[in-house]
């Protein structure tokens, strides 16, 4: 099966205001899809709908053929959706290693986790992710003390450790320095192929570094979809962005 994430006619109606309105798209396995759109286009709401934070009023979401529409967050997560938030969301009172260990558990149940040691394969996965994210020097540090960039990488690392099949990234470079943005692009490019990734992003320089296919949202609807070159020259896209100064 090549269709990783199938969103069909997804709509949410907040008492008359449709933040996402009949949105349809198919993300292929291993694809890296960027979602662009002016403020208020419904990008974050779309992520909320897919990941179960907000219940949709119409439409369906399928993950590798399985219907995950409006299931509770942890069930959707167990089906293979991982999500990174705009504001880094890690376990601030736990160490970096403990954060990754929590993410690594192949077993969600309380009673199955009443044991002292992790499974060997989970442990191996933690080590792989440590290498990828270069968090080795800060493994013993409390996550709340990390720099902004490190915290973002830790969160990315947790999603990989979690073995999410489809990863939703909400503005992964927000608030990062140039160097940090560059490193983040590296990590995401390394994840390409082995993970299916959906990124919401504003930073065009960053989008050029990572993007393959782009979906543009406007007023909750799909406006355009295609490769970077096509999107940049699309008159509809230019018009939508007019108020915010066009794509830059």
């Amino acid at each position: 099966m090549n269709e990783a994430l199938t969103i069909d006619g997804l709509t949410v109606d907040f008492g008359g205001f449709k933040a996402v309105d009949g949105f349809t798209t198919v993300v292929q396995k291993g694809e890296l899809r960027v979602i662009l759109g002016p403020n208020g286009a419904g990008k974050t709401t779309l992520m909320d709908l897919v990941s179960g934070k907000t219940a949709s009023t119409q439409g369906t979401v399928h993950l590798f053929g399985e219907n995950i529409t409006n299931r509770p967050e942890h069930i959707i997560a167990r089906h293979g959706i991982g999500r990174k938030f705009q504001i880094p969301s890690v376990f601030r009172d736990l160490t970096v290693r403990q954060n990754l260990e929590v993410a690594a558990s192949g077993e969600p149940g309380v009673f199955r986790n009443l044991r002292l040691h992790m499974a060997a394969e989970d442990r191996a996965r933690v080590e792989d992710v440590i290498a990828l994210t270069r968090l080795e020097p800060v493994l013993g540090t409390i996550a709340g003390e990390l720099s902004h960039g490190q915290m973002q990488w830790l969160e990315l690392g947790m999603l990989i450790t979690q073995q999410a099949k489809v990863i939703l990234l909400d503005e992964p470079t927000a608030g990062m320095t140039h160097a940090e943005t560059f490193r983040t692009a590296e990590i995401i490019n390394e994840m390409k192929g082995s993970h299916t990734i959906l990124v919401v992003e504003h930073d065009m320089a960053f989008v050029r570094k990572i993007a393959e296919r782009i979906t543009v949202m406007h007023m909750g609807k799909l406006l355009a979809e295609g490769p970077m070159e096509k999107i940049e020259t699309d008159p509809k896209v230019r018009e939508a962005y007019l108020g915010s100064g066009g794509i830059h």
Binding site: S51, P72, E73, H74, A77, R78, G82, R83, F85, S89, V90, F91, R92, D93, L94, Q98, N99, E101, V102, A103, S105, P108, N113, M158, Q162
Partner: peptide, 17 residues
Amino acid sequence: LILQSTRDDPTRARYLG
């Protein structure tokens, strides 16, 4: 350990499944 993670950030713990 997982319990402590739910204390720190219940939303993150949910999204980890």
